[in-house]
Design a protein around this nucleic acid. Sequence first.
DNA 1: AGTTATATATATCAGGCCAATATAAGGTAT
DNA 2: ATACCTTATATTGGCCTGATATATATAACT
Lengths: 189, 189
Amino acid sequence: MDVKTLCLGVLHLGDATGYEIRKMFEQGLFSHCLEASFGSIYPALNRLAEDRLVVCRDERQNGRPDKKVYSLTAEGRAEFSQAILKDLAEDKYRSEFLFVSVFADLLPPNHMTELVDQQIATMKRLADEITSSSAETNTAGIRFVQGFGQVMHAAAIKYLEENRHLIEKDLTPEIPLETPADSPPLRTI
Amino acid sequence: MDVKTLCLGVLHLGDATGYEIRKMFEQGLFSHCLEASFGSIYPALNRLAEDRLVVCRDERQNGRPDKKVYSLTAEGRAEFSQAILKDLAEDKYRSEFLFVSVFADLLPPNHMTELVDQQIATMKRLADEITSSSAETNTAGIRFVQGFGQVMHAAAIKYLEENRHLIEKDLTPEIPLETPADSPPLRTI
DNA sequence: AGTTATATATATCAGGCCAATATAAGGTAT
DNA sequence: ATACCTTATATTGGCCTGATATATATAACT
């Protein structure tokens, strides 16, 4: 699924400029499941306009450069309905944090603690952004996707908080109340 | 973090060919958090060999073409330890399934039901792959990352099963045993 | 009043990366 | 027999990201 299709989808929810489409991927409804940059959005909109799947109207603004507001045409609407029937790519999750976690023992003391703190903070911020992102149209599909994002972020935060000790080597430990005779055997996953 | 660094990381866990590195991203330890294709791995290994961060030895095999087995050098080891200290990119989750879910009302009847079934099946397969992927070295970092993957997949499956009704419009319903007087009010997320 | 930062808004480009494809050989199921 | 899968390496077209450039306005500091 290329950026052209993603743009058609966003425009299905209402007219928008390239800048506003970008914001939908950066902060808005799709921020936790999709990404697209200016370098792909602007060419995609030009192609879509050439193919008459969208139309563009210039809106003058006092002082600022003209806004180019794009709207879906009937053909664009039909094209999008067809596009979402095609086979979907498998989900991709890309996490440099997890990659580095594998090599936790190579990091200097307390560095992993900082990374985990950062990771939890980021997850909380993203969850908050989902909560506060309200589209003008609030459909069942939108609620479903927002709910998914929140559940997943909550699960990630919970796992990090409960299991961070596995990869942290704290050089300033609290004095242990009891010295365990043996470590419990490690569960092989 | 580019593919060169990812290759150094994989080689940190043991010698490997380009093909085996690719498998680590496709099925193995990193399959649920990273991706890299042949088109980036082979050039990356050539660059690393030029820069003396890895060395390559040819291994003859009866019949089949020679294997090129790569090993980390001391310089490569040092380079990797430095690389994982740099700022990490934010996690990215890309899901065409979630994107399409927003537009569930545009799909023909029962299509979303198929998509959800597929999605759950895929999640279960990926969770199983994590369970069965055992590296020769089983460190705390590896267990942490595997555990994360399993928790996240389990959370996704649970959410899909409990909330799929929100986006499904079933045109061939079972005869209800009881007719509920009212649907419970939708929880606004 | 001046400076800095942020937001709106469009556009381009180098370089990185994926998906597809080519090549080659052997095993395995039909 | 033959079609297909697996092991392996390699290349290429084209898409996409990340960075950068341009222009303007507003808000917040100094």
